[in-house]
């Protein structure tokens, strides 16, 4: 099957000799909802910049739906819609004009562009703001405007660089719903995010970028299945003894009433029995960490 995106040996070295990407290989299937994770400075935005022709690569190849980006630049550009991380519209232009102009750059005539802009602005709950200057919008509205702009030419691949930054929970959920609908309609979506919960909830496949290198590329399911260690916070109603017992699992005091346990080969009921035998009665149990976060930190060597 033709890959939506296929990147081979992509390298980017900036003028100051900073190597942002080093021989990156990545492939994204058509119709996928793909997460590209990485901490700040990992190279995500650089990679997206190269895919979207905003940056020049030092070496390597980018194929978009089988088309070589350097040989079929305009065709490739038509297939991609980008919602960048930073606001990149003229704040002194009215909202609707930003969309209609963007459509014009893709060769869409004004009347078709206005019709498409109306659909998107209504969907993004920005229709009432269509005549307002973009600078007057709130942070969340600006993000939605950029999402609408990325979709104005009906791309086959949508790239979202931190789409939820500064968006409140309610709007974020409605944005997720909209993105799932687009994906169900066949649109390939590539997402970078700091909200690991977002990636876990939306994406089927994932790549983790660390210091300009892909350290992992697999399905979300397989990746999460690898989290064998469970970290839990256990709370007791009675004050804990000064010296905690030595058990088959790692145990750490958090305060006078709570401990954190890391379970590898022991399950939760065995752990509770073992604690009870040592006169520690547990009333509440809660997860200490997001599973994906645990893995992410482990893969990018940032765990404790």
């Amino acid at each position: 099957m033709l890959q939506a995106l296929s990147i081979s040996n992509l390298t980017k070295t900036y003028a100051n000799n900073m190597k942002a990407l080093s021989s990156v290989n990545l492939s994204v299937e058509q119709g996928d909802f793909f997460a590209l994770l990485g901490s700040n400075g990992a190279g995500k935005t650089t990679m997206i910049g190269i895919i979207c022709s905003l940056l020049n690569q030092t070496s390597g190849e980018v194929l978009v739906l089988g088309k070589d980006q350097t040989k079929h630049l305009n065709e490739v550009k038509r297939m991609i819609g980008l919602m960048p991380q930073e606001f990149n519209f003229n704040p002194f232009e009215p909202v609707e004009e930003i969309l209609v102009n963007q459509a014009g750059y893709y060769g869409i005539d004004r009347s078709s562009a206005k019709a498409q802009a109306e659909i998107l602005l209504k969907r993004m709950e920005l229709w009432d703001k269509r005549l307002d200057m973009a600078k007057s919008l709130s942070g969340g509205m600006k993000r939605r405007l950029m999402l609408a702009r990325a979709l104005i030419h009906q791309p086959k691949i949508l790239i979202l660089d931190e789409p939820s930054a500064g968006v409140d929970v309610e709007i974020r959920r409605s944005m997720w719903k909209f993105l799932r609908e687009l994906n169900d309609q066949g649109m390939t979506i590539i997402l970078t995010t700091h909200y690991l919960e977002e990636a876990e909830s939306l994406c089927r496949n994932i790549a983790i970028l660390d210091k300009g290198k892909i350290v992992e590329q697999t399905s979300m399911k397989k990746l999460l299945a690898r989290v064998s260690q469970q970290v839990l916070i256990l709370e007791s109603t009675e004050q804990l003894p000064d010296i905690l017992p030595a058990l088959d699992f790692k145990i750490e005091r958090l305060d006078a009433y709570s401990i954190q346990v890391s379970l590898n080969d022991v399950n939760i009921s065995q752990a509770l029995i073992a604690l009870s035998e040592n006169k520690i009665e547990i009333e509440h149990v809660r997860s200490a960490q997001n599973r994906l976060e645990t893995l992410f930190l482990r893969l990018t060597s940032k765990a404790g």
């Binding site: 979207c52 022709s53 905003l54 630049l73 305009n74 065709e75 550009k77 038509r78 991609i80 980008l82 960048p84 930073e86 606001f87 990149n88 519209f89 003229n90 704040p91 102009n101 963007q102 750059y105 893709y106 060769g107 702009r149």
Partner: peptide, 18 residues
Amino acid sequence: FLAKFNNSIEELLISPVS
């Protein structure tokens, strides 16, 4: 210059405009 300053030049750079 303003298009460069507020990054709206990227609207043109990502589009198939020669």
